[in-house]
């Protein structure tokens, strides 16, 4: 939403995964899923207020660099604190079975995860589209100065959005870890695919990101079916095509793309 390419987004994911893991081990999965987004949001606010603030009016290249640097620092700090080994994220017995859908059985947790994601997506959409706060955010993305003149607190709003985005990454980090397990590199390995999703959908577009996610998923599995060797290449071809033909993405508002 903030027209910022955030390399630290993967780091948010990783922090979420570790916080989720530790809290879950002590107090159960539900507590882990609550603690992870809160911890990550706090970290994001800190990052935004202390560091990113200095780069608001620098060129985007500098912003990319600083988020990239923080991503490395976070990843390596996690490695330093928790060690480099991959940690399994055990699920409670009740969720680790599989659920019979009639035509095929599907792991219960994955099913719940899919439902959970739909709920979260809807909640975020409500926040952005239906609250006054969301209005400031949406307007702020388009014309920062104008909103400021009208008395909207863009600075606060952008921090809130940044923290919200981070919280989501943290939540997903904790929620997806029982499937993917946790190690310090997880952040980076999710980063690049997430760029693809956002670019295809449209930088700064909410439904764009959702659509991008669906397209990337479908494109991947369709090519796996017809030409498995190309399944990984094809999403990057799609990403490049979108950047070249319509840099604002499928659902992004077209504008002149400048530095």
């Amino acid at each position: 939403m903030l027209r910022l390419v955030n390399f630290a987004h993967g780091a948010f994911y990783a922090i979420g995964a570790y916080v989720g893991l530790i809290v879950t081990q002590q107090y159960g999965l539900a507590a882990g899923l609550i603690a992870a987004p809160i911890a990550v949001a706090l970290f994001a606010v800190l990052f935004d207020r202390v560091l990113l603030r200095l780069f608001y009016d620098k060129e985007p290249t500098a912003q990319i660099l600083v988020t990239f640097g923080v991503a490395i620092v976070v990843e390596e700090s996690l490695r330093f604190i928790f060690g480099g080994t991959t940690r399994p994220f055990p699920l409670p017995e009740s969720l680790s079975g599989s659920f019979n859908l009639g035509f095929a059985s599907y792991p219960t947790y994955r099913l719940l995860l899919a439902l959970g994601i739909i709920v979260v997506v809807f909640a975020v959409w409500l926040f952005i589209e239906r609250t006054d706060y969301g209005l400031i955010v949406r307007a702020g993305v388009r014309d920062r100065t104008m909103v400021q003149l009208l008395g909207g607190n863009v600075k606060l709003a952008s921090t809130v959005v940044f923290a919200l985005g981070a919280a989501l990454a943290g939540l997903v980090g904790a929620a997806a870890s029982p499937i993917y397990s946790v190690d310090p590199n997880t952040g980076f390995s999710f980063l690049v695919p997430s760029f693809v999703v956002v670019v295809i959908g449209g930088l700064g577009s909410f439904w764009g990101a959702v659509l991008g996610g669906l397209i990337v998923g479908e494109l991947g599995s369709l090519t796996t079916l017809f030409f498995p060797a190309a399944s990984d290449v094809v999403i990057y071809v799609a990403m490049a095509l979108v950047l070249l033909v319509r840099p604002s993405g499928l659902l992004g508002e077209s504008e002149i793309i400048r530095g």
Partner: peptide, 28 residues
């Protein structure tokens, strides 16, 4: 020829996309 038209984050992302393509072609 394709990337020089873009700037800033778009340039970074497009070069990244091409590099990923090359990676997977070589990998596969």
């Amino acid at each position: 020829t394709l990337v020089v038209r873009l700037y800033g984050i778009y340039f970074a992302l497009l070069t990244l996309a091409f590099a990923q393509m090359v990676f997977f072609v070589v990998f596969k």
